[in-house]
Amino acid sequence: MGRAPRNFYGRTHGKTLRPSQKRYLAEDLPRYRLNHVTIDENPERTELDLAALPGSGPIWLEVGFGGGEHLVHMAQQNPGVRLIGCEPFVNGVAMCLGRLHRAPAPNVAIHPGDVRDLLDVLPAGCLHKVFLLYPDPWPKARHHRRRFVTPEHLRPLARACAAGAEFRLATDIPDYVRQALEEVLRAGFDLVAQEPRGWDDWITTRYEAKALREDRTPHYLTFRRTG
């Protein structure tokens, strides 16, 4: 499937990885990695066989899991759920794998790359919950089209969501909230709640802590896929 080349994320590499993080990538990632997602692996863009995911419960997706704090927490708190995490930032993947190395979660599958590749091959209506937590805000006006909450990203997400699926969005950028309220609703979701604090099962992440340190107000939005 064709798509615009614009990325909704920034760099994919940060500071030099520690030896332990390199080991996690070499030894632990193959165990958690979701295969047949990228164009190189699946040039025909054949629909993903959900039997490839661990377990048999409902499927949740986290778009850009950062260091994996929330992903691992949710997987451990919901062992009957199959949780896919997508993250193109190598250092974040390594951090998440470190958490999984210390506290394994067999119901996690990781795609260490662009979530758009995954959305291309997911069966329609297979996702029951989606998390977009403190995404890259692209604060400059000329970069707003790079945000995830634009039609080129939301249309395939909506296609992959089941009727009634929950879409959670957290951000500390007021203009991101504005754009989300416009675009997510247009994409086929209803707004269920907009709160100044996280959900009942929320775990504080370093991105939320940074926002609070810098006196930015977090916003927590809950949307529901219309059916």
Results as ranks from 00 to 15, higher is better:
M1S: 14
G2Q: 14
A4N: 14
A4W: 11
A4G: 13
F8H: 14
R11T: 12
T12A: 08
T12W: 04
K15Q: 13
K15W: 02
T16Y: 09
T16I: 08
L17H: 04
P19G: 02
P19Y: 06
S20K: 12
K22R: 15
L25W: 04
A26V: 00
A26G: 08
E27D: 10
D28V: 13
R31V: 11
R31Y: 11
Y32A: 05
R33D: 12
L34M: 04
N35Q: 14
N35G: 14
V37T: 03
T38Q: 10
D40C: 10
G57L: 01
L71C: 04
M74H: 11
M74G: 07
A75G: 09
A75H: 04
P79A: 04
G80I: 04
V81Y: 02
R82G: 02
L83C: 06
G85V: 05
G92D: 12
V93S: 02
L97Q: 00
G98F: 07
H101W: 10
A103I: 12
D114Y: 00
V121Y: 07
H128G: 15
L132E: 03
L132R: 12
H143E: 08
H144G: 09
R147A: 01
L154W: 02
R155T: 15
C161M: 07
A163E: 15
A165M: 06
E166L: 13
V177Q: 02
V177E: 02
Q179L: 13
L181F: 05
R186G: 11
A187Q: 03
W199K: 00
E208H: 01
P218A: 01
H219N: 14
T222S: 14
